[in-house]
């Protein structure tokens, strides 16, 4: 693992939160609701200009959670986008690293997801020392595709997360057997986001179940 030091191109810089204290808190509360009520679609109220390939909800999530204490891994296209790396370095000061295993936060586009087992799942004594994976997806809805159960869900919820590979979907569903180890995911699309912490059980629904 090496810390990459992309140069900050000042021409690529854009503004972050107008009010970092209040806006950071509001986005955290949205994330807290998302994480404590898995599968709930959350719409962020603020609309910010975003750097390069990042969308509004990914950008705000990173602005509110990251700082110099969090190691960040970016998927290849994000990592080669100078507007993304310059702004993350400038606003968050997070060290950007080249090995996903040591990442506190990993940010990926849906079509270039890291292999799930190459992220940090924590240890059985310290399962919290694990990666939070933020995935930018093409579409998010509550259509019946995945059935979600577990803490934070009253009975059951449904969600459709577009753009995930078959390999990743299976790996994510199977990772539940390793609880309390695992990776917590935040899926972002436009200004919407949805979280699936490791405690949420996922079942792929059969197509005919969708009509019921």
């Amino acid at each position: 693992m090496a810390v990459l030091t992309p140069t900050v191109n000042s021409n690529a810089l854009i503004a972050g939160f107008d009010d970092p204290v209040q806006h950071g808190q509001q986005v955290f509360r949205a994330l807290l609701k998302a994480m404590s009520e898995p599968g709930t679609l959350i719409e962020l109220e603020l609309n910010l200009a975003t750097p390069g390939l990042l969308n509004n909800s990914t950008w705000q999530t990173l602005l509110s959670l990251l700082d110099a204490d969090t190691q960040l891994w970016l998927s290849p296209r994000l990592n080669s986008d100078e507007r993304v790396t310059s702004n993350l370095r400038f606003h968050c000061q997070s060290p950007i690293i080249d090995g996903s295993k040591a990442a506190d936060f990993a940010v990926a586009l849906a079509d270039e997801l890291p292999v799930l087992r190459d992220l940090n799942w924590g240890t059985s004594e310290y399962p919290d020392r694990s990666t939070t994976l933020i995935v930018q997806v093409p579409a998010l809805s509550d259509e019946p595709h995945w059935e979600l159960t577990g803490p934070g869900i009253e009975s059951r919820k449904t969600a459709r997360i577009a753009g995930l590979s078959e390999e990743f979907r299976l790996a994510l569903i199977n990772s539940r057997k390793r609880f309390p180890l695992g990776v917590d995911c935040i899926f972002c699309c436009g200004s919407k986001l949805l979280a699936l912490p490791r405690s949420t059980q996922i079942r792929e629904m059969r197509p005919e179940e969708g009509e019921a």
């Binding site: 204290v21 955290f28 959670l65 204490d69 399962p127 694990s130 939070t132 912490p197």
Partner: peptide, 20 residues
């Protein structure tokens, strides 16, 4: 703000692993 962010990250992990 930096202390709050550190505590916020801990809260999100705590919520993801209920009771830990």
């Amino acid at each position: 703000e930096q202390s709050k962010r550190m505590i916020r990250r801990a809260i999100l992990k705590a919520v993801a692993i209920p009771g830990y």
